[in-house]
Structures are given as C-alpha cells and as structure tokens.
C-alpha cells in the first residue's frame, strides 16, 4: 500500500493541495534536465540574437590573423580565413537549431502518427504503412536525404532552406514510425482503449487523445535523439555541397572544408565546433529524458 491516497480514507474529506508551479517542480525533480534546458536556452538566445553575443562578424575575413590560436582577442581562435571561430559558432547555432529542430519535429511527428495509426487500425492499413516504411528504411539515411534534396532543389523561406528540412525529415520518419508502432501496439490492447471504443469515440480522437499521450516516452527519446542526428546530417549534406553553403556559419561546415587540411596545426578549428555539436546533442538528449519522466504522471509524487 505504498499508495499516496491510502492514508486518506474514502469518507474523510481532504482539501486539494495547491498545484505547485510546474517550472519549479521540474527543476526540483529533474535537476539535470534543468541544466540541459539552460544550455538549450543559451543556444536559442545565441541563435536568435547572435549580434549581441558574438564579438565579430562571422563572415569578416582578417588576413592578419589566419589560423590564430585561442587568445583574449579570439577566444576560440580563427580559421584559415582569419574568421573568428567563437563568432561563427554563435551564428552557427541558428542554423543548427532551425534545421535540427524543424526537421526532427517534422519527421518524428509524421512518423509517430503513422506508427500509431498502423498499430490502431492493424490489418491491411498496417500492412501498407509498414511496407512504405520498409521502402524508406531500405535506403541509407544520407543517400535518401541526398535524393530528396537533389530532387526538390532549394526553396528558401526567411533564409532557411525548407527543402533541406524536408530532406532531413524523410529519413527520420520511418525510424520513428517503427519504434512508435511497437509502443502503440502494446497500448492498443489496453482496456482503456477498449473503453474508448465502447464509448463510440472517433478514430481520430482515440489516436490523438488516448493513444498518443501514452507513447510520448519513446516519441520524446526519438525526437531529441534525431535533433542531434539532424544536426549531423545537415553538416554532412553541407559538406557535399547540397546543404548550407559557405560562407554561412554552420557547425557541420566548420568541421569539413579546409578544416581537414589544417587540423594538425590549428586543432581549435575542429575542437570547438565539435564541442558545440556534442554539447547540443547531449543537451537535447538529456532534456528529452527528463521531460519524458516529468510528463509521466506516474512519476509524480
């Protein structure tokens, strides 16, 4: 009887405790999640207002300090064109966040809906969705993204290539669909889904109101993991000349290009963008984990 309500006997009225502030509860229950959230917020701030954070213009070429080592003038050093690496990382966080976040959100959401629908309807619909997923899964991530990005070309809206987002979202979609379908299958046989059917609710309502919240745990893990993947994928596409192009500041680009030629003499050229990517990936994963625990009412006291 480790039940919280066990002490409260059914015939003694108890006043409802005040709902505590959700932010404070999150910080108290998930300290690591709060730390990662601060990192993500810092990254977002840097992405939104880079001009207030970055000491230099990321595109300014300074031939007087090519490949300068980290110093008080250039915290993270400079690259082969004398551009300030710290400033480029700050500006690069916008690219990373927009592409990573948007494409992972797009791919994971569609994948989740497909996965749940597949589990809920079963039979022929399940079969069709899963075969479609099989086709997508048959291509390696990078190849599939390449095909899509080559077929769609560039469509720039507010300085962001929408088609690049779609290209990265499509390989994410089948992977999320698979995992979410597995989780949804076990939810689908729960009596509360039968109860919803017996109450005559529409399929849409059952899928979104009753099933989706119960597969949120695997969804959040996949979603945050794929933000990291998307950032890497964007970097790879950029390296191949199909994603973000020079001279735009992007973390992936900073790792590729002529960094490969100079990393022995100027290791800061790869270390700092690498750290930035790792930090972002780590922060998103950690935040996803804590959010999952926080959102599960069963973990609440």
């Amino acid at each position: 009887m480790a039940n919280t309500t066990a002490a409260m006997s059914a015939n003694s009225a108890v006043t409802l405790p005040k709902r505590p502030n959700p932010v404070m509860t999150f910080v108290r229950q998930q300290p690591m999640g709060a730390v990662s959230f601060v990192v993500i917020c810092a990254m977002m701030f840097a992405g939104l207002f880079p001009q207030f954070v970055a000491p230099y213009n990321p595109l300014d070429i300074d031939f007087s300090s090519l490949l300068a080592a980290p110093s008080w003038d250039h915290w993270f050093g400079t690259d082969a064109y004398g551009r300030d690496i710290f400033s480029r990382i700050i500006y690069g966080s916008r690219t990373a966040l927009v592409i990573g976040f948007a494409s992972s959100a797009l791919g994971s959401s569609i994948g989740a809906v497909l996965g749940i629908a597949s589990a809920y309807f079963g039979g022929r619909i399940d079969n069709w969705i899963q075969r479609f997923v099989d086709v997508l899964l048959a291509f390696p991530i990078i190849v599939l993204a390449l095909v899509v990005v080559a077929a769609l070309r560039k469509t720039v809206v507010y300085g962001v290539d929408v088609n690049l987002i779609i290209a990265i979202a499509i390989p994410i979609l089948p992977r999320v669909a698979r995992v979410v379908r597995a989780a949804a299958l076990s939810v689908n046989v729960m009596p509360y889904i039968d109860a919803a059917r017996a109450a005559g609710y529409s399929d849409t309502r059952i899928i979104f109101r009753h099933m989706a919240p119960n597969v949120v745990a695997p969804f959040l893990i996949m979603f945050t993991a794929f933000i990291a993947q998307a950032i890497l994928l964007e970097a790879s596409l950029s390296f191949l000349g199909l994603g973000v192009t020079e001279p735009t500041a992007a973390w992936g680009l900073m790792l590729s290009g002529n960094a490969a030629d100079f990393y022995r003499e100027a290791p800061w050229m790869v270390i700092f963008p690498g750290v930035a990517i790792s930090l972002a990936v780590f922060a998103f994963n950690l935040f996803g984990d804590s959010l999952r625990d926080y959102l599960d009412p069963r973990f609440k006291t």
Binding site: Y192, D194, A195, G200, H210, P297
Partner: peptide
C-alpha cells in the same frame, strides 16, 4: 447505440488512461 451499452472492465489498473485525470476521463 454506444451511449446505451456501456462496459465496466475487470482490471481497474489498466482500464483508465494513465495520462488523463479522473475528471477528464469522466468528462470526455
């Protein structure tokens, strides 16, 4: 017809959606 035929399940642990409050479950 659904309104007229309802059901009570065996397992009170799995027949309520864990993500919804009691109020939401009954109000739905």
């Amino acid at each position: 017809l659904r309104r007229k035929i309802q059901v009570i399940f065996q397992d009170p642990y799995s027949s309520l959606n864990p993500r919804m409050t009691v109020g939401e479950i009954i109000a739905e």
